[in-house]
Design a protein around this nucleic acid. Structure first.
Lengths: 100, 100
DNA sequence: TACTTACATTGACAATCATCGATATGAGGA
DNA sequence: TCCTCATATCGATGATTGTCAATGTAAGTA
């Protein structure tokens, strides 16, 4: 998982509606109509957001009859978490790459 | 740290240049001129990106004479990591909130 | 004081984005 | 077959974004 993939995931999470959708999915699978109830957006807008979440790999969907169910993708989520976890802050680090 | 703050941080990380800047800062403090060397962007563009990274709280800066040094903010980074870490995927979760 | 250096701000522009209403698709059900 | 329901796609629009050249600012230097 390279930094382009990560940037894509971050872009998907940069919209506050989409971030809340992901939080809902973190509690378990949801169908589109239940997601739609939870937000004050129209159905085309939800569909657009779900497409973006799926395209970055963070969300998977499955269809059952007329309904579409969304859930987080464990593999992508793991890769993303690993990247974020590896960002570090350490007061003691050398500032070797500075001026003067 | 609410989900608006997190969305702002994700937006800051959604640009691939900014994501790489954060990775560089994860290795330690850097001054603006060293960051500028590492990317193929102009100085105003770097300045713009650093402003966005600072405004979401992820990056701190300090000025020494003419030079400006950037580093990750440990506190914000911790809050962000915690949020991401709490996103979970569990195959066994109830799909209680679904249709039919 | 005048000059240089490091960085920020401004203004412009093309590209991307979130959103919506309208419409299409496709799966049941009558 | 015709209708309804759940969702996707299309086309348009106003807002935001990344980028740059030009310019401003503020610190050090001669």
């Amino acid at each position: 998982m390279n930094s382009m993939d990560i940037a894509l995931i971050c872009k998907a999470l940069s919209d506050s509606n989409r971030l809340q959708i992901v939080q809902m999915l973190s509690a378990g699978e949801r169908c589109a109509c239940k997601l739609l109830e939870a937000f004050e957006i129209t159905q085309p807008t939800l569909s657009h957001h779900m497409k973006i979440l799926c395209e970055c790999g963070l969300v998977r969907d499955r269809q059952v009859g007329k309904w579409r169910y969304y859930s987080l993708c464990g593999e992508t989520l793991r890769g993303f978490k690993e990247f974020i976890e590896n960002l570090s802050y350490d007061d003691q680090k050398e500032s070797g790459a500075n001026c003067k």
